[in-house]
């Protein structure tokens, strides 16, 4: 009963498509379960259409499981079972078919190998060119990054170049005169006026703490600073005519201080 089941299983497995190969190219048929004692390939002669060898064998219940490697010598359909015999020379008995197909690449009339087809040789070398290409790509990338970076910086730099001290002072003075300047703006106006006088008296290179002392000592600048003290800083300020104080700066032109 078990032998019959193994035979049915083997038959079911081998009922699949036959294994195909071409002449001279080895192929493998696995999972061949054969009941009974151990099998071996029959002797091969010069006229054998198939050369068979047992790649692997293992016990499978009362049967044996084989992996058969075969190499076809002549085109055609064959049953590998016919190329097997029992080692103990007993009768093979009922064996399943192990179909294989050997195909020919050449026609039967062709006795010489196929002629080689001319093909383009692979490009040998080219390392220098590859390096040049990679280097070029890297340089382009670097320039792109630098260019993009400069482009972003260019906008404020342009404003810095264009906005002179006078340009910044005029609107602040105008707002101070019409009373719309807030505390922060007044502080900024004071700093701008200090800068204007530092430029006027060529004190840009003098430390600020010393420059402000010199400005206080100057007749016109000192008067302005004292009035600013009263307007902006004094605890009990004296009245200051802001309009009269700042009017000389309302139409101030660039005096060479630039965007200092």
């Amino acid at each position: 009963m078990r032998a019959l089941a193994a035979l049915l299983f083997a038959t079911a497995c081998l009922a699949q498509e036959p294994v195909r190969t071409t002449i001279g190219i080895p192929a493998l048929v696995t999972g061949v379960v054969l009941e009974g004692s151990e099998f071996e390939p029959i002797e091969t002669t010069l006229k054998s259409p198939i050369v068979l060898r047992i790649e692997h064998m293992q016990k499978h219940g009362t049967a044996n499981r084989y992996a058969l490697q075969f190499t076809g010598m002549e085109a055609g359909q064959y049953d590998l079972a016919t190329f097997l015999r029992r080692k103990d020379r007993s009768d093979n008995g009922a064996m399943p078919k192990i179909p294989v197909v050997i195909e020919a690449v050449r026609d039967d009339s062709q006795h010489e190998p196929n002629a080689l087809q001319p093909m383009k040789a692979r490009d040998v070398g080219g390392y220098a060119r590859t390096m040049w290409l990679l280097g070029g790509a890297w340089a382009i990338g670097l320039l792109a990054i630098l260019f993009a970076f400069r482009k972003k910086k260019a906008a404020p730099a342009a404003i810095l170049r264009k906005a002179t001290l006078a340009d910044r002072l005029r609107p602040a003075v105008a707002r101070a005169i019409d009373g719309s300047l807030d505390s922060e703006g007044r502080a900024e106006l004071e700093r701008l006026l200090l800068s204007v006088w530092r430029v006027r008296l060529s004190l840009q290179d003098v430390p600020v703490r010393e420059a402000i002392v010199l400005l206080r000592a100057h007749e016109e600048a000192g008067e302005l600073l004292r009035a600013l003290d009263q307007w902006l800083h004094a605890k009990s300020p004296q009245p200051v005519d802001v309009e009269a104080l700042l009017r000389p700066y309302s139409k101030i032109e660039d005096e060479g201080g630039g965007a200092a």
Partner: peptide
């Protein structure tokens, strides 16, 4: 300290 007279906010307002 030298640059205090030319604050960036002043630039923006100008």
């Amino acid at each position: 300290l030298t640059e205090v007279g030319a604050s960036k906010s002043a630039l923006a307002k100008a």
